[in-house]
Nucleic acid binder design. Structure first.
Lengths: 226, 226
DNA sequence: CGTGGCCTTGATAAAGTTCAAGAGCCGTGG
DNA sequence: CCACGGCTCTTGAACTTTATCAAGGCCACG
């Protein structure tokens, strides 16, 4: 019960007529994944895509020697795994539940059929993919053009912005995961957090980080040094 | 003369009825850019997108201290600059003509209008954006998980595949640009090309690169060392 | 023939990774 | 209630990779 309501709250489906929401409810598959469970792996055939209803999902790549790069972390309401739906190929990366997740799975054919009949659904999906391209652009910029302190500063400011400018942040992921998100390793992240504390930019206590000098962080994010 | 034919050959518009091709021809703006000319800059408002008809276009990011990361190089037939069309924001990166280019510009509103009436156009665009996401995934993987020799090996194999397995490659861009594409600098690229020659993997002569040991390159691309 | 662009090479320095060890934390079970 | 094992995080030292700085070579074009 409540599937239609759940679907209606997904931004991707905003503005859809009730009739189409019902159609979606007919084709959706409700799935639950446990923390640490693999949702799909790079190279698997993708016969549809997912929307997170509860929980948190990471999309990541692995190098042969075990280093992980997180590409994205999806929260409730966000769709993922759409790429093969439209290219007809395999998933380009892996997906894993970071905690217990409830996911809605939308099979490819039914969804494409629906898109053909509903331009606003197509435009919603185009907007989502475009936003994702924008994020990837930033990720590439960070990885290639900034060094780790700059990436970390940018991430902290991003968190602060998301929390309406809050100075007191609390990491919702472990520092190890944060390292993987920033394209580095826990040791390096740890050292840089220490250095930034020493310079009076931030204050850390476990998963809590207090921003002491937002301007200093901005300079760091922009220029790569203080 | 010829505009409709040009438009009809663009993969994005494949399968469109003639009537819609004519509509497109009505809204398109034909533009020419000289080598080195800026097409748009990061932060500019995007009121439409481009399709390359002739020439070559690079999409890139710059760091404050001048290092460049090429995100993409577009050849004739490929659309670019679509992100702001669907998110309503600014261009996330810069675009510059690498040689004299003829571009078709499609204004946003007319195009969105057309998409609403034509699901197959929407699906074509979704496929293109999805492919681009896939490419970005590979770029991130390369930048974060591989070191420069691995990236170079992967790029050479990609060129070889594109040329139906050809062993004799010819770079269509300068080595400096290749360095920027691989997320490094010309000096480093030069050294690594030298090292790879010394190991008998390739043979270089100016812009020509001959692949001597494809298996060796695959190992390098996969594992980061021979 | 000189000038500017592009590429190469060498010496040096910086940033990040690896390896190793240890500290803090927490849930489980004796 | 406390001890143990596992996990995350931190710190140190050596090492690797890459960037930086500087200089010189090659080549096309005027």
């Amino acid at each position: 019960m409540g599937i239609i309501q759940d679907i209606a709250t997904i931004p991707l489906f905003r503005g859809l007529p009730d009739k189409h929401l019902e159609d979606l409810a007919m084709i959706v598959v409700d799935q639950v994944f446990q923390r640490g469970q693999v949702i799909f792996s790079e190279g698997d055939d993708g016969n549809g895509f997912f929307v997170a209803i509860t929980g948190r999902v990471k999309i990541y790549k692995m190098s042969p020697d075990g280093k992980e790069q997180i590409l994205h972390i999806f929260e409730p309401g966000e769709p993922f795994g759409e790429v093969p739906v439209f290219t007809g190929q395999q998933f380009p990366a892996n997906a894993e539940a970071m905690k217990e997740c409830r996911l809605y799975f939308f099979p490819r054919d039914s969804f494409v059929h629906l898109i053909k009949k509903n331009p606003s659904l197509a435009l919603n999906m185009l907007a989502i993919l475009s936003k994702r391209l924008r994020r990837f652009t930033m990720l590439v910029e960070n990885l290639s053009l900034k060094e780790v302190p700059g990436r970390l500063a940018a991430y902290l400011l991003y968190l602060s912005d998301k929390g309406e400018g809050a100075r007191d942040l609390e990491l919702s992921i472990t520092k190890g995961q944060l390292a993987s998100l920033l394209g580095t390793i826990p040791e390096t992240l740890s050292r840089i957090l220490g250095k930034m504390s020493g310079q009076g930019l931030i204050e850390t206590e476990g998963p809590k980080i207090k921003i002491l000098d937002p301007r200093g962080l901005e300079d760091l994010a922009e220029w790569g040094h203080l």
